[in-house]
Design a protein around this nucleic acid. Sequence first.
DNA 1: ATGACATTTGCAAAATGA
Length: 257
Amino acid sequence: MRIATYNVNGIKARLPRLLEWLEEQRPDIACLQELKSSDDTFPEAEIRAAGYGAVWHGQKGFNGVAVLARGRDPVERQRGLPGDPDDSHSRYLEAEVDGLVVASIYLPNGNPVPGPKFDYKLAWMDRLIAHARTLLAEEVPVVLAGDYNVIPTDADVYSPAAMADDALMQPQSRAALRRLVHQGWTDALRARHPVGPLWTFWDYQAGAWARDAGFRIDHLLLSPQAADRLADAGVDRAYRGREKASDHAPVWAVIAD
DNA sequence: ATGACATTTGCAAAATGA
């Protein structure tokens, strides 16, 4: 099965692009981020007409995540990341599809550094690490898919110097991502493509797409039971170059049946 | 240095993003 993650940057503005991608690439599971839509304005009918069942966790104006499944309805397991009852952001949704546990993650950006937004990012990552440990303990196939807003290494950015002060590549952000991965998760994209640029995001500004000035922040982390079945992974780069594109490209992995 | 650029809300310009 093909599972993908796509930060759509506004599902209402991006709906034609999203439906086009679903029809052309036919992912079995699609995790979406940055819906920027409240629950009652989620375009459920259009997505169902495209052949997908969906669960979603929306929020007015910003954030918002969803899990789509082709030809079936995802079974919701967890709405919101556990660990802080005062966290009102819609950034985590976990569902089960055909025996696979999948989470759609929109990790906080954290800029500017330092500041309360960066503190929130790091605290959120600590909560994700704690929850991910409970998922690993289930010893089932799990995919944690989403926009992590962390550039894992200097090889994952067009210019480490240009981004040096950004929350996405602070040592604390990278260390937290390493703590997560080192629990036993496999970075699907790097497992299949160990070296070289693999951008998943290009800023709208300063001609970043034209200059191929991107970085890699959208990740699919696989539990051992999913990693054993990893057949392929990649980035649907071309969708970043289309009209009215999101600033992210879809990222996908194929898990053998 | 600032803003660029895009989206949403709501109808102007601010908030948010990365």
